[in-house]
Design a protein around this nucleic acid. Structure first.
Lengths: 214, 214
DNA sequence: CGTCCTATTGAATAACATCAATGAAAGTGG
DNA sequence: CCACTTTCATTGATGTTATTCAATAGGACG
């Protein structure tokens, strides 16, 4: 096998022999507790990472976009569940494949560490979002973070439902909805349709998400 | 104070040439944003990892106990601040030292990855704790998690203040205090003093923290 | 065109935060 | 060792606010 040490190969180009799957929106990619047979990499689309609680409540621990790795578990089982939010494409790296690459390519381990570190930073971010913050702050920060993943444009696309956002921010659907209305009334943004908003006053949005330090 | 059952003699044996620092309670170990000059390992005591927000609110992203690594940053600056909660001892690994070891010992990178993975799992856990949970659930889970770090005993030691617990759970000091009272009234636990409780009904405590899946 | 899912809005409730006061420890200095 | 001060914890009264319950409306899709 020819080694190219380029870990960051452009993610959309399909390498020969690479296994990919296409997952339609709302479909489950894997469930918490299942044997961790694969490492997935999001190539296209948005997926949600979540856990279910005993009483049926769902908590979304994160959304994953292009380039994110999923299923990296130290133990033998997945630690969370993942569903596609939009139609998505993922590269599937079999467990054996990953282990082989780890042996062959020393740089790969470093790559995994870097990715895990990024995930950790994101998780810390989430903790800041959830703790002791008013709904407006949460939603404002959510929108700002989402913007960073897309073009830093006036128009912002929200692939997920209000319900997903609520599960992500630790709020109810209704509160999220009301908060959007509130932001509309304040002239911060304009709803184009259910999944697209236009940011009218970025400075104010930033102000509402005050305390953002990262 | 009773110091019987002391089996912590060997695990913290000091390696020759190892640099250690002793930090008294409440003292800062490092601050967010400072150049990340060192990697710390907690050998004794409890420290809190936190971030300050613009308006002065503090969010504790985690407590770290023996064996935890602190200051692992991909970028050149610390990503959070750390204070000692109790008098603590930490091993200091200089940045150059870490890099040298990474070159010399291939297994060390794997070790760092594993530790980072553990941290990530803990962070995910925190996210579950913060999202959409009633104060009783939060406090119950907090106590159960704390118990896992100590002997699984009837007696539980809380090294941190109520204020710290509040900043950790996304509540106010008063609510935390009231929740403890509530747990006392329900016969779940008994306060021995400000920093020690005795668990009287573990089953009920587990029930109150329902939804714990990990 | 009708059905289902999602989003929005309204009204009432419950719950956590806030404000305020007291009490209990812990630390400080004579 | 004891007053004094400071910090921390608890409890009560009050207010705010997000949730809950409920109804309507808007989109998506067969």
């Amino acid at each position: 096998m020819r080694e190219n040490n380029n870990n960051m190969a452009s993610p959309d180009r399909k390498a020969p022999g690479e296994r990919r799957i296409r997952v339609p929106a709302k479909e489950t990619i894997f469930l918490e507790g299942e044997p961790a047979a694969n490492l997935f990499e999001v190539v296209e689309g948005v997926v949600k990472i979540y856990k279910m609680m005993a009483d049926g409540r769902t908590i979304i621990t994160g959304f994953a976009y292009k380039r994110s790795l999923l299923g990296l578990a130290r133990s033998g089982n997945y630690y969370y569940s993942v569903d596609a939010v939009t139609d998505s494409t993922l590269v599937v790296h079999g467990k054996a494949e990953v282990e082989a690459r780890l042996r062959a390519d020393p740089g790969y381990l470093q790559y995994l560490l870097d990715e895990t570190n990024d995930e950790l930073v994101q998780a810390q971010d989430r903790i800041l979002l959830l703790g002791r913050r008013a709904p407006v702050e949460k939603v404002a920060l959510f929108l700002l973070r989402l913007r960073q993943w897309q073009s830093e444009d006036r128009k912002l696309h929200l692939p997920m439902t209000r319900h997903d956002i609520a599960d992500y921010l630790g709020l109810t659907t209704e509160t999220v909805s009301r908060t959007f209305t509130q932001l509309r009334d304040k002239g911060v943004l304009k709803s184009l349709n259910q999944h697209d908003v236009e940011i009218l006053d970025l400075a104010l949005l930033r102000h509402l998400g005050e305390g953002e330090d990262s």
